[in-house]
Amino acid sequence: MSNAPVHNIDVPAFAADPYADLTTIREGTGAAFVPQLNATLFCRRETIHREEKRVDLFSSRQPEGLMVKLMGENMLRKDGEEHASDRKITFPSYSPRTVRDHWSERFRAKTQEALDALAPQGGCCLVRDFAMRVCGEALRDVTGLYDLSWQEVDATSQAMIDGVANYHGDPALESKALAAVARINQAVERQLDDLPEYSLLKVQLDSGMDVGPAAGNIRLAISGGQNEPRDAIAGAVWALLTHPEQLQMIRDGQATWKDAFEEFNRWQSPVGMVPRGVTRDEEVEGVQLSKGDRVFFMYSAANRDPRVFDAPVVFDITRNNSPSLAFGAGPHFCAGAAVSRELVSQVALPMLFERFPNIRLEGDVRFHGWAFRGPVEVKVRW
């Protein structure tokens, strides 16, 4: 068992705002064992950047982990050649070239439809009425699962995300996650006779992959490919509207929408952590780990590490975000990063602000989550 210093948390308070606890751990010994999560949390950026790549020690393969138990095997829970093979097979669907030449115009068309529907309303909740729809429609295209509505894409994604972050064992969350998995499996079966070009389902089956593993990677794509860009869209709008001078910099051409997207992802870290299983006894950063221990690499803490980022709690779109771990590091760097960057920074944000140049916030905004974090609602008027 890990001999890291023990740090107790209040789970609901940690979900509401994890940063005070994470700062205490990071600025103390850098790592701590949290009994409520049964895991050792590593919180310093350089440690995580280095150790996450050591998959021989910190394995992604966790057959007893929540993701595998609820969602089945997928490329995120593989290492080495198995992981590399799945990435190579799925790459034609996610590649920057495919995103540019095939997906981008589809993203724009669906986003335009969403904006046209919202315009007469004079306001909306950006999370529910805009970001959910834009991301859900994009995932229908990328995965090829047109049997799912965009509302179902969001609902199944959220159910699976809640399930894999259910370290406190809520049976209702587990049940919802399993129902979401079943619904996606049903959609895969219904799509087999009509495989859309460049879709994740098509490129996998064309490679010779069996339906079961292909469906596992689609479930992974939906679980991560919906909530993260959804939260980044709504959250980045909130960040810019609460920092109007930085919004003006973008409008004046002194910064870009991509700058805002990358800075929001660093600042709020929609993906707050990645779990790993320890494969052997070893000491890391003064912490003695034992085979079978569970480790969480806390991206959210790393992305606010003052050893790397000046004034890290400040939202600043002019900063250099190349050290950010928002999309991970090493062999498990987010496979869908190009899709997310295009959808959020080149489509959703610029089109929203162009359509509604006088958009303004209405009411307070509350964030929630520590493993996955985003705004609960962002109400706006125009």
Rank of each mutant, 00 (worst) to 15 (best):
E354T: 13
E362L: 13
P213D: 05
S269F: 03
P5G: 05
R140H: 03
Y19R: 04
I161K: 00
G65T: 13
D162V: 10
M1L: 11
A337R: 14
D170F: 00
T47F: 08
T242N: 06
S207G: 06
M298V: 15
G292P: 14
E354N: 13
G369H: 04
D116R: 06
V295I: 07
E73M: 07
F367V: 13
D293C: 05
S300A: 15
R100C: 01
L241E: 00
D210C: 07
Q36V: 11
P275Q: 02
R183D: 00
D101P: 11
F107S: 02
D10A: 06
G253Y: 02
S175P: 09
Q248C: 02
M132N: 15
D116L: 03
A335I: 13
N227S: 08
F42M: 02
R219C: 05
Q191F: 04
V376H: 00
N8W: 09
P270I: 09
S269K: 06
R360P: 05
S322T: 13
A326Y: 03
R280P: 02
F261W: 12
G169H: 14
L247P: 04
N265S: 08
T279H: 06
N303V: 12
F333D: 02
I25V: 14
Q346G: 07
A236V: 15
G225K: 04
D79M: 06
V313I: 12
Q288L: 12
V344G: 00
V271L: 10
Q248T: 15
G363E: 01
S149T: 15
E152I: 06
A232W: 05
Q36Y: 03
F42C: 02
G292R: 02
V308G: 07
A114I: 10
Y299S: 07
L220C: 02
S157W: 02
L200A: 08
R140T: 10
I222W: 05
A20V: 12
D193Q: 12
V142E: 08
E73T: 14
E362W: 09
H332F: 07
I25E: 06
T23M: 09
L139M: 11
G144F: 03
G292K: 03
K202H: 00
G292Y: 09
R108M: 02
A239F: 07
G136N: 01
T29C: 14
R307D: 14
N320H: 08
L361F: 15
N3M: 04
D193T: 10
D10I: 08
R190Y: 12
A311F: 11
G144Q: 00
N321M: 01
G235L: 04
A165H: 12
F264M: 00
E262V: 13
G369T: 10
N166P: 05
E354I: 09
L205R: 09
A179S: 12
Q226R: 05
